[in-house]
Write a protein that binds this DNA or RNA. Structure first.
Lengths: 205, 205
DNA sequence: AGCACAAATAACCGATTCGGTCAAGAATTT
DNA sequence: AAATTCTTGACCGAATCGGTTATTTGTGCT
């Protein structure tokens, strides 16, 4: 893969996106090197020239995606955000920012979590172990609940937000055009409306 | 396909679900007859015995899915439900009921709308034309808006509900266990919470 | 039991595609 | 222009593709 990193960055990005898209859409077994090559606008031989084998390419993408998502999470400190909706917004903001740069990474990671191909089982277990810890930022805290007009709604709202996030990801995947920024605006408006209507008056600054 | 319809219904359902799942997950080109056969627990030869060809199988699934979804929509009258949330609930209820019987149909239909294989282009255009009309049941009506404390929230809430529906479908797809009924209960609770917090007091019966 | 008939599949077909290699051409450097 | 690096068309054996056929398996009937 030293052959690959010496390419000019624009070409690297093109190839990485093509590979992420193919693996994300088809899974490891069904994504062929030729698919990736055609989508990236290069020859199949180059794919093997750069990465050696299909498995090595997949491994490269795993660490690439893992590093990207983990670093984006690491540079945001969730602990000092005490409000539930603030944490939601911060989380969605950082995630949208990285997704904007790399639109195929979320689909790829999602598919990696359900990948079953024997050939990559070993490298997948390590990947899952490392990235698994970064999902615990949205847990409901004690002081969140008291802000709701009806405290029982807190958990329900959290479920709503989970479904919205899932739908948001699905929507991003299907939309060819990258209009993330406008959707992010809409997303913020939704969050704001939820907070405004579910919170007690005294917690609406 | 007369060979297929004379099978016992349970076997038909197994095969249909396997085919829907494979085509939905991989797309027409990447879903092989062998994939479907293995997933259905039958031999590849039987697939061709029942349906003749891969294209005929795909065509059968298209009409099957189209009929199912259209009939489930037709048997619910949205016009006499004047409240937005009631229409949401009714829509989600009927859709959940059909999804419970046939969990892979939504993924299949979603993939059919972005299918690009030349071999099935002709039958796809007809399918899209027929089923395209059935998406307009959740439009916002004039008398919905006035029920909101803040009328501007109406459209935002509709967006929230769309995202939730998308996330709901994605969630159903990933969950192996069919715990739809409990999720449907949760979904109803979410809808109820939304209505309770967004509507003016006078519209909460 | 044995027989007839249907249902299912193992084995097979030519064609295509698979992951991967290699040597020859195109670009670039010196 | 020579040397060196990049890129790729052509190719490899193996696997898989959609589809067919011949054999096995199961089932009812007598």
């Amino acid at each position: 893969m030293d052959k690959f990193v010496s390419l000019k960055e624009e070409k690297q990005v093109t190839i990485i996106n093509a590979a992420l898209s193919c693996f994300g859409k088809y899974g490891y077994a069904k994504a062929s090197a030729n698919d990736i090559a055609v989508l990236a606008g290069i020859s199949k031989a180059s794919v093997f020239q750069y990465f050696g084998s299909k498995k090595q390419l997949y491994a490269y993408l795993l660490t690439y995606a893992g590093d990207l998502i983990m670093s984006s999470f690491r540079q945001t400190d969730f602990d000092d955000k005490t409000d539930l909706f603030d944490r939601i917004l911060l989380s969605s903001h950082t995630e949208a920012k990285t997704l904007e740069k790399n639109p195929y990474i979320s689909q790829f990671i999602l598919s990696a979590w359900t990948e079953t191909a024997d050939e990559v089982r070993d490298i997948l277990t390590e990947f899952k172990k490392e990235t698994g810890k970064f999902r615990n930022n949205l847990i409901l805290r004690k002081d969140d609940v008291s802000k709701f007009k009806n405290p029982d709604d807190a958990e329900t709202v959290l479920q709503i937000l989970m479904l919205m996030a899932e739908g948001y990801a699905a929507y991003c995947r299907n939309a060819e055009k990258t209009m993330y920024s406008s959707l992010t605006d809409d997303f913020q408006k939704m969050i704001a409306a939820m907070r405004r209507n579910f919170y007690k008056e005294e917690y609406l600054l």
